[in-house]
């Protein structure tokens, strides 16, 4: 009983701690897709975020500066994507795929050339006084690290922006019918650029967290498809921040669970099979996602060309 309790509680806590890795890019992508631009290269944004944050911390010695550099890393790649997709108006899928593959090679080269494998303490759990002593919910909710709390805040902020601000209305309108927004006198291109850059920033932040708060260093396969999983979660959550959060919890939960199982149940279940679990879950989620009613923005994937088709 006690072992099960231990596994459950630590899994839940780990799930919440890990949730930021998927939450940030998923929320960012939700914003960008609502504006009409699809970022298949989120994986690339995350890889660059992880890479830049890691070396940022090593070079500057400051954790938060490293985080900022990580955000910047993701934004730079997303800026290229924005330029290609919004200004040059080329195919968003091709652009994203190309950028992702570029990031794969680039990060591998930089990492191998730099050669460091320094362990970075980065983000560690904070013990919130009093509350963290509570039974069950104490270790689960109140011993998380600061970025996880930021993640919760982010869901709320994104939801407010999308549903309750004029900018959110403009984002939604731009995704559905950019002509209407243009004719109302707003700058469609700026709205889309900002949305894509937000996605890049948030994905870079998610990647930064991976290298600074989860693995505490960089490794070449560290993102392992999480960017794509984030894309699945956006679909699964029907572009709604709260539903996306539920999806993120599910995946982080499985992720944390299989990590725990590897550590605790040595040899009973071969670890590669455990490693597969999150991806199998993703496949299942994809199948489930298409069953429900989905309302993708009508203008998604289509570049806006002023003055006619």
């Amino acid at each position: 009983m006690s072992l099960l309790y231990k596994i459950a509680v630590t899994s839940l806590a780990a799930a919440l701690r890990m949730s930021f890795v998927l939450l940030a890019p998923a929320l960012g992508e939700a914003i960008s897709e609502q504006a009409g631009v699809y970022n298949i290269g989120v994986e690339g944004y995350m890889i660059m975020g992880a890479l830049s944050a890691y070396y940022g911390v090593i070079l500057t010695g400051n954790l938060w500066l490293g985080v900022a550099i990580g955000i910047l890393g993701g934004m730079v790649i997303s800026l290229i994507h924005a330029y290609l997709s919004i200004t040059l108006k080329t195919d968003q899928i091709v652009n994203g795929t190309g950028l992702w593959i570029f990031c794969l090679g680039f990060s591998a080269f930089v990492f191998r050339t730099a050669g460091t494998t320094v362990y970075i303490k980065g983000f560690s759990p904070i013990q919130i006084p009093v509350l963290s002593e509570l039974p069950v919910i104490g270790p689960v909710l109140f011993q998380l690290n600061i970025l996880t709390y930021l993640g919760f805040l982010l869901i709320f902020v994104v939801a407010v922006i999308l549903f309750r601000t004029p900018f959110g209305l403009l984002i939604k309108a731009t995704g559905e019918n950019p002509l209407a927004v243009d004719m109302a006198g707003h700058n469609v291109f700026l709205i889309r650029y900002i949305s894509v850059l937000l996605c890049g920033a948030m994905s870079g932040l998610g990647g930064a967290y991976m290298s600074l708060g989860v693995l505490h260093r960089f490794s070449e396969d560290m993102i392992a498809g999480r960017g794509f999983i984030a894309l699945c979660i956006v679909l699964f959550g029907n572009w709604n921040p709260w539903k996306i959060f539920v999806g993120v919890l599910l995946f982080s939960g499985i992720d944390a669970f299989q990590l725990r199982m590897q550590v605790m149940e040595r040899g009973i279940i071969p670890y590669p099979l455990l490693l597969m679990l999150p991806y199998i879950l993703t496949l299942v989620a994809l199948s489930v996602a298409v069953l429900g009613k989905k309302n993708p923005p009508k203008g998604l994937f289509f570049p806006y060309i002023r003055g006619g088709q």
């Binding site: 407010v160 601000t165 559905e176 002509l179 209407a180």
Partner: peptide, 26 residues
């Protein structure tokens, strides 16, 4: 048609000048 089917009548009409209240809220 430069209307947005998924949004409401007021959201469509006021797209050019969206009223705000405190804290940038709609």
């Amino acid at each position: 048609f430069s209307l947005i089917p998924a949004l409401t009548v007021s959201e469509n009409i006021a797209l050019g000048n969206i009223p705000t209240k405190k804290f940038f809220l709609l």
